[in-house]
């Protein structure tokens, strides 16, 4: 049966600096997200959710899923470095495969939305080239990206990664508190993206304007 689907990707930094409070805060929030999205018929039937984690490697922890039928969401484990290049490349490949599969199944696919969460500065490598490939206007599947930085994240890099809006922790909350606010804004965004119809009654990414504990930074024009 053909459906109209808005895919969400949470791409989460799990480098060693996330150990302790930050990773615990994310792991506590994922079951809440699972519960809130999965029990809301308006949202659950139209959104799909995927979890990608990265440090010096990147992996799909939860493939693009209907949260109303998955039994649980995997948790993150902190270790290693911060390599954006592998994250963006995996995201590119995953979105390509997911959209191709959804289209092959006859679904109407809306532009994917990415929540990108990081606490550090990326390893110096070719991540900018990988990012440009992911957000190339000529690539039909390029996602909308909301970027969240906390801890030591460089606000200029957050601004560079975001295509819609960036958010940088302003220090008013500890890392765990900031990540709880992040998780809440993620849930709110998914819910309102699924429920607030756009121009043709379909869906598009509904971005938070402000997130408590974070400073909003405009996205660089891609």
């Amino acid at each position: 049966m053909s459906q109209q689907i808005l895919p969400f990707y949470l791409v989460c930094d799990e480098s060693s600096s996330m150990m302790g409070g930050p990773i615990d805060a994310i792991n506590k929030s994922l079951p809440v997200l699972h519960q809130e999205i999965g029990s809301n018929p308006v949202v659950a039937d139209k959104t799909r959710f995927a979890l990608i984690s990265f440090n010096h490697q990147a992996q799909v922890l939860l493939p693009l899923s209907d949260l109303s039928i998955v039994s649980s969401v995997p948790s993150l484990t902190a270790s290693g470095g911060t390599d954006y290049e592998v994250a963006f490349n995996l995201l590119y490949d995953t979105i390509s495969q997911d959209v191709a599969k959804l289209k092959a199944d006859g679904h109407q696919v809306l532009r994917p939305a990415v929540f990108f969460l990081t606490d550090g500065q990326p390893n110096p490598n070719n991540w900018v080239a990988a990012y440009q490939r992911l957000t190339d206007p000529a690539w039909g599947l390029r996602p909308n990206i909301l970027a969240f930085g906390f801890g030591e994240a460089d606000s200029a890099i957050i601004q560079q990664v975001a295509t819609v809006l960036g958010f940088v922790a302003d220090g008013s909350l500890g890392p765990a508190g900031a990540l709880q606010e992040f998780a809440q804004s993620l849930i709110q965004s998914i819910v309102s993206s699924g429920t607030s119809a756009d121009a043709n009654g379909g869906m598009s990414l509904s971005a938070p304007e402000k997130v408590s504990g974070f400073r909003t930074v405009p996205a660089d024009v891609v």
């Binding site: 289209k103 809306l110 532009r111 599947l141 121009a199 043709n200 869906m203 598009s204």
Partner: peptide
Amino acid sequence: KHGDGAISDSRTDA
């Protein structure tokens, strides 16, 4: 007017 692109276009005249 939605077209057959990979991503559904949601804009409309009104």
